[in-house]
Design a protein around this nucleic acid. Structure first.
Lengths: 135, 135
DNA sequence: CCGAATCCTATGAGATACTG
DNA sequence: CAGTATCTCATAGGATTCGG
């Protein structure tokens, strides 16, 4: 049954490739920062520590669930630190770790490219769409 | 009915924030390159044009659908060019545009950060997980 | 060989309500 | 105030099949 084995082979290839990707450091990093909120949180923490509720207010669009989730993974990755002050209403501050701060550099590069070239991308899109429209 | 209006206000805030994000060039770029396959395709094209099937073979894990989809958006964004040679079995070549090549720079920065620091991230994760385990 | 269309499932993410 | 748990729904993405 060649059909079956072909499908199986594909499956194996896919798994091998996925495993390869799972090992690739660049890919891991991309997976992290491509999380919808990760870069926003990091940038929000760029100029100093913030409390949970401050972050929530600052990133008006984030749901409380996603904010928590994002902060957890960032903490786990060692990119942000979490300090709990056991006062009466608990107070929790988040801050960038050194590692987290070092991430600001590549993020900054991205930002520069974006600001320099995204207009061109927008033009390209427009051109492309007009092409399609005439079809 | 304060419940309703509070929910409505949140909704409005979210929409405003989303609109703001939709305008932000950095965010747009992030949305692009965070696409699971975008960076892989760009890197695969870094050292020269390739045919569709070459790409498919090179990126063993990608489904044909996602490859097509990715290439379409990249073409629309003006990052890759698509040239069709109308031979008997059609031949289609993809290549990086100038704009696409300029993207290699920030991607390269990301790669460097990843290779320099992801080990540290991995260590942080391990530490974090061991902490949780003792709880 | 290249790609479009259809179908189906797993995941992501918001709303809500509850705990310490 | 900070965080967790549950429900629900939209969508991303893979398999498959058909067309040029």
């Amino acid at each position: 049954m060649p059909t079956r084995s072909a499908a199986q082979r594909r499956q194996l290839e896919r798994e091998a490739f996925d495993a390869y990707l799972a090992e690739c450091p660049s890919r891991k990093l991309l997976d992290r920062i491509s999380d919808k909120w990760v870069t926003l949180v990091i940038c929000a923490l760029a100029d100093g520590p913030r409390r949970f509720s401050e972050l929530a207010r600052h990133l008006a669009g984030v749901s409380q669930k996603m904010l928590t989730q994002t902060l957890r993974t960032l903490e786990r990755d060692g990119l942000v630190t979490r300090t709990v002050t056991a006062s009466v209403p608990v107070r929790v501050d988040y801050a960038l770790s050194e590692l987290g701060e070092s991430l600001l550099t590549p993020i900054h590069h991205m930002k520069e490219w974006a600001e320099a070239h995204m207009a061109e991308v927008a033009r390209a899109q427009q051109g492309y769409d007009e092409q399609s429209a005439t079809a």
